[in-house]
Design a protein around this nucleic acid. Structure first.
Lengths: 133, 133
DNA sequence: ATAGACCCTGTAGTCGCTACAGGGTCAAGC
DNA sequence: GCTTGACCCTGTAGCGACTACAGGGTCTAT
């Protein structure tokens, strides 16, 4: 019988770009279901794990928190529900991102002002002066 | 003799907008020097602490890490040095901020694309689809 | 004398991993 | 059959920058 080797955690890691320790961490905190084990107690993954981990990785890249990812996964497992709840999560996250961009842009302006000045002795360092205001 | 009351940690907190616990935390990790103590073992702060804490707060608001703040404080204590090192820290930080803005802007575009689509059953939810790619 | 606001120390929790320590398993080469 | 080295296992501790207790003590006003 042709017995293809089980997919190990290392395979999954290389395939998805998620580190081995992180995969175990995702399992521990309930994001990735515990896979079957081989005789030697190695984790043996299936295609479904691969897909789920890809999903998690992509969502994380997009800055969703693990809680948000968890919620979205639960919804996508529940195929007959409406997509509104997922949309709501994405919208909240989008707002957070927009707020962060605005904050950082203000910050950048202030840092620009601080940095673009001549150097001298500490006593009249513009940066320290600015921070002391 | 007129004995003004010592400045308590609560005063310092109200004055600077830094929480009491955070002030103690800054002391523990060496950012704020340990003040004198009253008979009842309360911390009794001086003007210098107030100034230093203002500095820390401002730098934190501008997104400098505690390590960066520590370095800048050390330099500003050392008044006869040049200001170049402080400038270098600020420049590195500015670059980080710029990179973050760029990343978040890309992110926002992708989220915009995800969110601006009609709702339907989960089965053809654009968001989940996008995350599955 | 007592209530209530404030202060103290020390420890554990948050988030999302990362990095060990101290072992076991497996495939290939000799 | 034995060894080497790559891989896997569990469990725990660490990061940064706080935050939130628990279990006490102090100070001020009534």
């Amino acid at each position: 019988m042709a017995m293809t080797r089980p997919m190990t955690i290392g395979h999954l890691a290389r395939e998805t770009g998620v580190r081995v320790e992180t995969i175990r961490f995702y399992e521990k905190c309930g994001l990735l279901p515990p896979p079957a084990r081989t005789g030697g107690n190695y984790r043996a993954y299936e295609e479904s794990h691969l897909r789920r981990l890809h999903f998690i990785r992509r969502a994380r890249e997009l800055g969703f928190s693990l809680d948000q990812v968890r919620a979205m996964l639960a919804m996508s497992d529940n195929k007959n529900q409406s997509c509104e709840a997922v949309d709501a999560i994405a919208r909240v996250h989008l707002e957070e991102v927009e707020r962060k961009i605005a904050d950082l842009t203000e910050l950048k302006q202030e840092l620009d002002r601080m940095v673009n000045h001549a150097h001298g002795p500490i006593a009249d360092c513009r940066i320290i002066e600015t921070l002391n205001r």
